[in-house]
């Protein structure tokens, strides 16, 4: 009798099984990373809190009505013009900034390239952008407005960062993220953030009825 060889297991269908699993995971995979417009809310004020008085010229008022139309500083505006207007307002630098925490008097803005007009903001760290929307405003419009305002800040920060450190603010932040312990980079990031702090406040929305 002929000696039989041990029969090999047929592995031909292994690929089919693997493909089946592969397709299952391909279908169920969602690769999107969660991203969003981040925001820090202000803390709840104590009951008898009186808001500080801010000069009218230091407030940039953006109104969105329930038909998703934009009114900026009492004039109608298109969304695409909002960034320019906001940049002009923030970067005006018509007066002196907030006094320092150690009591030093406020300095005029020496890096601003705005018009230095009397009727617009004094200093980027005093310039407040107030967004007032209606309860009926669409969320998409609201986010678009926030986005334009953030873009204005981003552009100003980028410009200043190029001037001072020869790279854009985005690059600087990336570099800092990769090297969290680098004190030098940290100081640079904070310096730019302090020069153009993002002050966007949400006013209580008007109600429809």
């Amino acid at each position: 009798m002929a000696r039989r060889e041990n029969p090999e297991i047929n592995a031909g269908s292994m690929a089919d099984i693997a493909f089946l699993l592969l397709i299952f995971f391909l279908v169920t995979t969602t690769m999107n990373v969660d991203s969003g417009v981040s925001k820090k809310l202000s803390e709840k004020p104590p009951p008898n809190y009186e808001p500080p008085i801010i000069k009218k010229k230091n407030i940039f008022e953006v109104n969105i009505n329930r038909k998703n139309e934009l009114m900026v500083e009492d004039e109608r505006m298109q969304l695409k013009d909002l960034k320019e207007a906001a940049m002009k307002f923030i970067d005006n630098g018509g007066g002196v900034g907030k006094p320092g925490e150690d009591g030093t008097p406020g300095q005029p803005c020496d890096y601003c390239q705005g018009e230095k007009s009397e009727s617009s903001s004094d200093h980027p760290n005093k310039a407040v952008i107030s967004v007032q929307s209606d309860r009926g405003t669409e969320y998409g419009t609201y986010i678009a407005v926030q986005n334009e305002l953030l873009k204005a800040y981003r552009e100003l920060r980028d410009r200043l960062c190029r001037q001072r450190y020869n790279m854009s603010f985005t690059e600087l932040e990336e570099a800092y993220k990769d090297d969290k312990n680098n004190e030098d980079l940290k100081k640079k990031v904070e310096d730019i953030k302090k020069a153009y702090p993002q002050i966007i406040s949400d006013a209580e929305p008007t109600s429809a009825q």
Binding site: S35, G36, V37, K39, K40, L41, S42, E43, K44, Q146
Partner: peptide, 13 residues
């Protein structure tokens, strides 16, 4: 804000 959850992110693509 009432419960001091102050960090928010408006999810957007």
């Amino acid at each position: 804000r009432d419960v001091n959850a102050l960090k928010i992110s408006y999810s957007a693509s």
